[in-house]
Design a binder for these strands. Structure first.
Length: 299
DNA sequence: ATGGTGGCCCGGCCA
């Protein structure tokens, strides 16, 4: 079973790239972020024609998250915005921006979850934060607090769980091209990294890092200044796996090819994990599962 | 050191 995540930076603008990638990479489940669509504009039919159901949670002009799956999505399991109610409409004709004082990441379409193949999938688009210490940064940290509370209240690390997406956090200095150059900025601050570490201490495993120890592997590169070609990037997109899922992990990869070419693709590359075909029931072998994961993880 | 690019939709915001 292949589970992927990709910040597509406008699903409308990237439709051809995304559909081509589905054909090439054959993910069973694709978590998407920054679709920049309202739900009424979600392109359900083109995905359906390729065998993928899609659930979408959007607001119009910005943000927007989705799950596409060629395994059945349990419609009764869908959760949006941490179950906290509707998000704002940022589509045409609506207010186009909010002041710092009015910024509230919970007004925005950043969280969608559904159960697929007995695994609870969570697709996340974390706030960017803009500048350390700004209200947007404070809101980012509050948003991670809400995520952690939602996990505590609605899930257990003994559940089969994949929490993925554009987290906008590079967990360690090995996840950025130059720690000195990014020091002081968002994505790498101590508080953001603590929020990420909190997810791991709750019980989630960083799927990619758990089996890929090398530095210099990124999921995002700024469009500007030829950063992609210089590999000036950050590993800010993640697939965090609860132990029953992590125990099935056989491979993880970032498809850098998808960041290349014309017309220009998203500034993020897709990340995927491959799981073996065992089920996710590990009750009988829980300790063994944890030991296998620990033995495999090299940090 | 600054500014570089690309999405939204058409002036400026957001990443």
């Amino acid at each position: 079973m292949r589970i992927a995540t990709w910040n597509v930076n406008s699903l409308k603008a990237r439709m051809d790239r995304v559909l081509d990638w589905l054909e090439r990479a054959q993910p069973d489940v694709l978590l998407m972020q920054e679709t920049k669509l309202g739900d009424d504009d979600a392109p359900l039919l083109p995905f359906r024609m390729r065998g993928y159901e899609m659930v979408h949670h959007g607001e119009g002009r910005w943000n927007g998250v989705a799950i596409a799956s060629r395994l059945p999505i349990d419609a009764s399991s869908v959760v949006t915005n941490f179950g906290d109610g509707p998000v704002r409409d940022s589509g045409p004709g609506s207010a186009t921006n909010v002041s710092e004082e009015d910024f509230n990441p919970f007004d925005e379409a950043r969280m969608l979850s559904a159960v697929v193949a007995d695994i609870r999938i969570v697709t996340l688009y974390a706030p960017n934060g803009r500048a350390v210490g700004s209200p947007f940064y404070t809101g980012k940290l509050a948003w991670f607090d809400r995520l952690e509370r939602w996990l505590r209240d609605n899930a257990s690390a003994t559940d089969a769980l994949v929490v993925g997406g554009d987290m906008n956090i590079a967990p360690t200095d090995a996840d950025v091209w130059d720690a000195a150059k990014v020091h002081g900025g968002t994505h790498v601050s101590a508080d953001e990294r603590a929020a990420f570490a909190e997810l791991l201490s709750w019980g989630l495993v960083d799927g990619y890092r758990s089996i890929r120890p090398e530095s210099g592997r990124f999921t995002w590169w700024d469009y500007r200044a030829g950063n992609f070609h210089k590999n000036y990037g950050m590993r800010i997109d993640h697939l965090l796996l609860s132990p029953p899922v992590a125990d099935r992990l056989v491979w993880a990869e970032i498809d850098r090819e998808a960041r290349k070419g014309v017309p220009i693709p998203s500034d993020h590359a897709p990340l995927f994990v491959d799981l073996d075909e065992r089920g996710t029931e590990v009750d009988a072998g829980w300790e063994g599962a944890l030991q296998r994961i620990a033995a495999r993880t090299r940090r």
